[in-house]
Write a protein that binds this DNA or RNA. Sequence first.
DNA 1: CGTGCCTTTGAGCCCACTCAATCCCAGTGG
DNA 2: CCACTGGGATTGAGTGGGCTCAAAGGCACG
Lengths: 239, 239
Amino acid sequence: MARTFESCASCAIHAQAICALCDADEMHVLDEMKYFRSYPPGQTIVFAGDRLDFMASVVSGLATLSQDLHDGRRQTVGLLQPSDFIGRPGRPIARYDITAASEVLLCCFARRPFEKLIASTAHIGSRLLEMTLDELDAARDWMLVLGRKSAREKIASLLLILATRAAQNAGPPFSADVQIDLPLTREAMADHLGLTLETVSRQFSALRHDGVITLAGARHVTIADMARLRREAGDGLHI
Amino acid sequence: MARTFESCASCAIHAQAICALCDADEMHVLDEMKYFRSYPPGQTIVFAGDRLDFMASVVSGLATLSQDLHDGRRQTVGLLQPSDFIGRPGRPIARYDITAASEVLLCCFARRPFEKLIASTAHIGSRLLEMTLDELDAARDWMLVLGRKSAREKIASLLLILATRAAQNAGPPFSADVQIDLPLTREAMADHLGLTLETVSRQFSALRHDGVITLAGARHVTIADMARLRREAGDGLHI
DNA sequence: CGTGCCTTTGAGCCCACTCAATCCCAGTGG
DNA sequence: CCACTGGGATTGAGTGGGCTCAAAGGCACG
């Protein structure tokens, strides 16, 4: 990836990332201390309970945050998308597994110096608080999905979130139909939705049969009518 | 409540609250600006979408944070217990309903001046970040309960959390059996667990029948064997 | 042309839901 | 003192959505 040598000046995620509020001087400091890492799909970035000696922003790709019961049941508790932040000041031990779902590129900072920076740079500390509050809202919104929605509504909710991000990245044209390349296997989606992979597969088939989505292969989804998808998802998603 | 005139010096929640890191001068400022409010059980403190012109710490009682679908399905996304904080800097509009489950006493601060204080007082800002990170972990832990646990495990998980807090408040003696006075109706528990009230009631009966708990009336629970309860809850609760 | 992973589809079962009746208990008023 | 009321809790009977177990299909890779 040529991006490894990219400088902060041309960074695609800057506007939403931890450094969004930083001024030129602060950006310069970050530019100097950052380094990149990439992970292939399926690779674990950290295991829950392990030490995490860096903090990072997701630059590209998708990673999952997940938790396991001893008998193997697994729940994904968050999706890490570009600009999302990994790591917490004062807490070097990871609470959840972090796994690359697709090829993931991280913009990393060594823990110690970055913790000092958080303490000394108000722009970083307050952006971190802001991002954490957003994550908390997202987690709480997802609790409604997990606790109260049917399998069909769950699938539609996930598609709606992914489609919304895809449409934003595709730019304002907001063209007719939205296309998504699913970065998740049926099993990974099931783990995020609190379902089994068979149920996920069946609901995809049902949504296709009912004309809500079109499938090209298992992973490429086209949504002709976003309003319809929104209705299928039920309300409660603050997007 | 005589507590209305209490000063910060004798506050029971100080050590865990938003003001935990403050020095004497900072405490003096807070002492001057705080005021108390109380709410009877069942009363709504804020409705989602409404303006919330104060921020507050829960001093005593239990409040719920919840979200509704248009058809009436409801999910409680958080329990507010003593020392928990209400309100977010820069976000005067409430995202969730906040409802008093039992008699609730709040220690309030007017929004504007408190926002300034957060920005200017590092001790408050960093404590808020710390508390928000804890809430995020709690929310994510609860996602595992909602998405992957059986009804019986869900009930045991809730009891475990309430019992742990009760045991802490009861002090170190850590005596034989732990007693809880449930501040929630069967329906409120169902809304927190993603179940129906009938299922909650049935699982209480089953746990009593199997000797895991003893019931005195519907709301008073005794737990003889915490280890047993912990096993019933399954793992995944970082308590 | 295997091999392995992911996905789809089928058949049957079970846990939690729905609908409904009853119980309990505190409060209120005759 | 009792009757009545109403909210909460319990229990029963029956249903169904999502799970389990199982088989087969698609597709990329060596």
